[in-house]
């Protein structure tokens, strides 16, 4: 580690502790800082390259150092949560239901950790992982599963009857978590230049590319059932164009998008609707644009409205 990276970390630590970033996950904070570097480069550059901070550096040479330091700080905070989550907290009991046989959980967990580390190697991988990993870390999406099972309405039907996942709601939560975790794995196989902000739209990948990614991932995480990989990769496809995609994929698609900008402990202003209700309401109006399942959004909106979420 170079002294410059250490120095950059000191500066970034102070930036990251800004109260405006309270309630964000490490990846969200990272995105905020990168956004700041982008929008305020003209103000930051003369200050940071001054004699007081990084003398002799130009902004173009300093920026990669700052970004490297930022990634290291984010990883440090991120793995505090995801290391124990992947090693033990994430229940994989549903895998034996999917494979109809016993699965080597420890090896799968090791493969998942390695895969996530690979995804987070690239800036693009980090960016597209913000939503899904925030959804897992904040955990708010899992309470919807409780309500879905309580109501036994459209989403429940899609999960249990259409996708035929006749299992407990805790196991469905596990499937949803794993789907979210693997959702952004497609970046490992995508070519340079295809990455745009369209990752926030469900239809970012098309069928043939999805099949290619699924086959590649199947080789890489061979112990994981293919249904699980399909659910994760299909969550990047538009439901409007692909009516066959799994209910868990559709749910993961919605929650990854919702949690991309989610902020814990957000104060709801008087006169405003609750955060989830507002988000689902807006998402319903934009469902074609994002490729979401409108009926799912309707049900999630009703849940959020009734629960005051």
């Amino acid at each position: 580690m170079t002294p410059e990276v250490d120095k950059a970390k000191l500066f970034l630590e102070r930036l990251l502790s800004n109260p405006m970033l309270q309630g964000y996950t490490p990846l969200q904070r990272e995105e905020q800082i990168l956004q700041l570097f982008s929008t305020h480069a003209s103000q930051l550059a003369p200050l940071l390259t001054s004699a007081e901070f990084f003398p002799g550096k130009s902004w173009t040479t300093l920026l990669p150092i700052l970004i490297q330091a930022l990634f290291e700080l984010t990883d440090r905070d991120l793995w505090v949560t995801f290391e124990p989550f992947l090693q033990s907290d994430l229940s994989l009991s549903f895998l034996s239901f999917l494979t109809k046989q016993a699965v080597p959980e420890a090896q799968i967990r090791a493969q998942l950790i390695a895969l996530l580390k690979d995804i987070l190697q690239s800036p693009e991988g980090r960016r597209v992982s913000t939503g899904p990993l925030t959804a897992i870390q904040q955990g708010g999406c899992f309470r919807y599963i409780d309500e879905i099972f309580e109501r036994k309405s459209y989403i429940h039907f899609e999960i249990t009857k259409v996708q035929r996942l006749r299992m407990s709601k805790e196991e469905i939560k596990g499937i949803l978590a794993l789907t979210l975790l693997l959702k952004s794995a497609y970046v490992l196989y995508s070519s340079e230049g295809m990455h745009t902000y369209t990752d926030r739209i469900a239809g970012v990948i098309q069928g043939p590319f999805a099949e290619k990614v699924i086959r590649a991932l199947q080789k890489r995480i061979s112990l994981l059932p293919i249904a699980m990989i399909e659910s994760a990769i299909h969550s990047n496809m538009s439901f409007g164009e692909n009516r066959f995609i799994e209910a868990t994929a559709r749910l993961a698609s919605i929650f990854a998008s919702r949690y991309r900008t989610f902020r814990a402990g957000l104060k709801v202003d008087r006169g405003a609707d609750s955060p989830d209700k507002s988000w689902f309401s807006v998402a319903r109006k934009n469902h074609k644009f994002y490729g979401f399942d409108l009926k799912m959004l309707d049900e999630l909106y009703m849940i959020a409205a009734e629960m005051g979420w």
Binding site: R14, L21, I33, Q35, T39, Q43, Y197, T198, A283, F289
Partner: peptide, 30 residues
């Protein structure tokens, strides 16, 4: 609710008008 917010959301998703929650005034304090 019906027009502006959905449009704003779509624009943000396309990377338009995206800014950090960090205010420059707070950063310059550092």
């Amino acid at each position: 609710n019906e027009e502006y917010l959905p449009l704003k959301q779509r624009n943000l998703s396309m990377g338009e008008g995206e800014t950090s929650d960090l205010k420059w005034e707070a950063v310059s304090e550092l």
